[in-house]
Design a protein around this nucleic acid. Structure first.
Lengths: 119, 119
DNA sequence: TCCATATTTCAAATAATATTTAAATATTGA
DNA sequence: TCAATATTTAAATATTATTTGAAATATGGA
């Protein structure tokens, strides 16, 4: 993972509204949530919400699919896991303090898991 | 962990320079690195670096200690782990897709993480 | 077709953040 | 104490993010 990609993702999460949105989606799992539902849960106004969704999608952290008249957003667990791995990569100079295992939701969501590309 | 705290930390990491600094410290482990060494490794000018260190320290992600005429910065692994845990909390509505194990550097971190006046 | 629902886009106003330079502080060793 | 090294602060400038409200688009059902 490139540093620029990781910084974009972290920056996207570095805002209370977007973090609340993302967490709601993480907790919803791969099934995701309709945009309106997320707005209801977080109390964010529709147009702000749309802005934040775009930011999260641009950072690769969420995906969107249309379902009838709803747009369903879902967390991209693959991206989240790559990001977490990037942060802890080579922790303590290759003397990992604890064995690191796969984080959450490995392999689920996106079919395009290109393996654990470390960088 | 409060959402505001997490957003502050993620926002601090959401900048290429700070992310590079933080990763260098994560890789250095609890022993940390002198500020000047971090500047050398990352190519960031001293005063910019100082600005970014302050941001990271304010977010609770790094600690600083004076050692002779050097200031040694170190990643606060405890904070990092709390942050990662916060992001994945209740993943998939309590139906974790994979068993979640402790992240890295779990109880290790620095011997004096608690009460380290980073804030 | 027409209306209600769901979501996005746009543009303007506002607010927050980053970068640079130069000067200031603190520590060590001569 | 002086000079060198290491780091921080302050102030000016430049850049980018966020919110709001109105209007636009798209879907499904009466």
């Amino acid at each position: 993972m490139e540093i620029k990609t990781a910084a974009t993702a972290l920056s996207a999460l570095g805002h209370a509204s977007r973090l609340a949105v993302f967490r709601a989606l993480v907790q919803a799992g791969p099934a995701g949530l309709a945009a309106g539902k997320v707005g209801e849960v977080t109390g964010i106004a529709p147009s702000s919400l749309s802005f934040h969704f775009k930011e999260l999608a641009h950072a690769g952290l969420v995906s969107a699919r249309q379902e009838g008249r709803y747009v369903i957003y879902a967390a991209r667990f693959e991206a989240m896991n790559e990001l977490l791995a990037y942060l802890t990569e080579n922790c303590c100079g290759g003397n990992p303090c604890l064995p690191m295992s796969d984080p959450v939701c490995g392999g689920v969501s996106s079919p395009a898991t290109t393996g654990k590309g470390s960088e």
